[in-house]
């Protein structure tokens, strides 16, 4: 999937804010990318545009060769449903539905009957065996986040986006979640794009894209260590 010269501006005239200001970036199949940058640098906006949740005001976003800008609202939704999974920072589960029902929601929206075995497998994958019948308010934050990840994975999307998936979790739970994501990349050749503030979390990725003021300012690759990333980040902070 590819973003080319993507611009996303809010408001107009003197109050115009360009959250993204000409971002070009590729996410290759089977890679794990971390997006980092200071607060307000446009990370969430980038993710929303890439996932088709938001429409850029300029530039193109292509997923598997399809330009999202050419699609109508319904077509875009259908494409998103088939190819994109999204994990929000605040889990955003439907409170009225049980964990299993929340996970099965995308399938049902696509008009498919979820196979119970498949559901169990997905829940097991995120370590939630046996909790399927609980409603979100009966689950801890980490558990809710895992339900959200399971929901994003159930339709076997080409790309999984996660916006600060570990932001609200303790170190241990965070590590579990990150291992889970890494595992997906390694075993299922899943493409994962994750926004994070945490260098330790970013260290689980293959590549780190650094944003500042709506622009890509740097890319780190290879064997990433938390310290290197943290150092690069601190250099970036005063820049904004």
């Amino acid at each position: 999937m590819r973003l080319h010269e993507v611009v996303r501006a809010y408001g107009d005239g003197p109050r115009r804010v360009a959250a993204l200001d000409g971002v070009t970036v590729d996410f290759d199949r089977g890679t794990f990318t971390a997006v980092m940058g200071p607060s307000g640098s446009g990370k969430s906006t980038l993710l929303h545009c890439a996932a088709g949740l938001d429409r850029p005001t300029g530039g193109t976003v292509t997923i598997d060769g399809t330009d999202l800008g050419t699609l109508g609202e319904t077509a875009l939704t259908l494409l998103r449903r088939a190819r994109v999974g999204f994990v929000f920072q605040s889990y955003n589960l439907v409170p009225a539905l049980t964990a299993a029902q929340n996970v099965a929601l995308p399938l049902r929206l696509a008009g498919r009957r979820p196979d119970p075995a498949e559901l169990d497998a997905t829940l097991a994958e995120v370590g939630l065996t046996g909790r399927g019948r609980h409603r979100p308010d009966e689950l801890s934050g980490g558990e809710q986040q895992r339900v959200a990840i399971a929901r994003a994975l159930i339709s076997r999307p080409a790309v999984l986006f996660a916006d600060e998936p570990t932001g609200a979790l303790d170190t241990r739970t965070s590590r579990d979640i990150l291992r889970l994501l890494r595992d997906l990349v390694d075993r299922h050749r899943q493409t994962v794009v994750m926004v994070t503030h945490d260098p330790v979390a970013a260290a689980h990725a293959d590549r780190v894209v650094l944003l500042a003021d709506g622009r890509v300012v740097d890319e780190l690759g290879g064997d990433l260590a938390a310290e290197t990333i943290a150092a690069r980040m601190t250099r970036l902070e005063p820049a904004c």
Binding site: L53, E73, T74, T77, L78, R80, R81, F86, F88, N92, V94, L105, P106, L109, A110, R151, S155
Partner: peptide, 10 residues
């Protein structure tokens, strides 16, 4: 939220 997880406007 429903739209985000794949519900169409229809």
């Amino acid at each position: 939220l429903l739209r985000a997880v794949g519900a169409t406007p229809g």
